[in-house]
Write a protein that binds this DNA or RNA. Sequence first.
DNA 1: GTTAGTGCAAACCTTTTGCAGCTCT
DNA 2: AGAGCTGCAAAAGGTTTGCACTAAC
Lengths: 166, 166
Amino acid sequence: MSADSMQGSLKQRGIRLTRQRQILLDLIDKSGKHLDAESLFLMAQEKDPKLNRVTVYRTLKMLKQGGLVDELDLMHYGGDQHYYETRMKQEHAHVICLRCGKVEEFFGDPLQKLRRQIESHFGFQIVLARTEIGGYCSHCQTLRAREVSEAAALTEAHPVTKRKKA
Amino acid sequence: MSADSMQGSLKQRGIRLTRQRQILLDLIDKSGKHLDAESLFLMAQEKDPKLNRVTVYRTLKMLKQGGLVDELDLMHYGGDQHYYETRMKQEHAHVICLRCGKVEEFFGDPLQKLRRQIESHFGFQIVLARTEIGGYCSHCQTLRAREVSEAAALTEAHPVTKRKKA
DNA sequence: GTTAGTGCAAACCTTTTGCAGCTCT
DNA sequence: AGAGCTGCAAAAGGTTTGCACTAAC
């Protein structure tokens, strides 16, 4: 969904297109996916230093409620914040490497089958679906094996930074 | 996984079975699934009023890292806390009603297929997988339709409680 | 001119951390 | 005895709220 079609969608619902929202919509649209609120805020602040963090949260909430963006957790890689991506037509799973943080997207019939089965099995009306898979990407598997054996060799494992951002 | 086999698993790793942990393991095991830290804490406090919230968090973290429990978000129904369930042999999706909060579990081949496809497609080594689906259960679908039309009739929609616990 | 939206500060919820003292083995 | 665990207090991370002011329509 483009920034333009987002704007249209909002206008129809009588939601005002403020300068701040235009900046945010623009960034969400053109930046790659999987932004968290803080990153979006930092990027937005470069365009408008007065733009407040709270406005970012309020805008994301509005877009989420309006179904224009999806909210992800990405297995809480790097903290408990949420990530956002503009809603796509096609449902997809997020596959995240727990070592390097790379996120892959997987489209494919198992997801559609799952959806249909759940709808018919429970008579359930699906609004949101989220599949997140954590593990090690092909590149990190070998590196990780080495790390683990090194860690075992030491008396004490070296602690891993968990919440802090770079 | 029973509280007994959990205890065995911990003992093997040289982890001490303190009174507090026995209480928590017991509660996690026998109570239904999908407990959050605060509920577990409240239940534990009835058995030992001195038991601290922090101990609950530390225990859950340890069990999660040891692969004895799985952590869920349940689409952030009722807040941003996490929910825990004892790990099952069979992968399953969680289907949560956004109106009444009921959680159903879905087992079925699409999940296994998805897993296999992702492993082979990306050469990915899966450690954790989570599928959460939000929507309306068969019972709530009709009730919800009524609520929505009522809300539309009013000048202002009645706010929905979000974070607070009862 | 209305009404919705913004910024600011302060609150909030959930979770983690530092440290002194206690307890399991 | 000694490592590991607990409780307490305090902090942190992420997000929301109240309110006076501003800006979009």
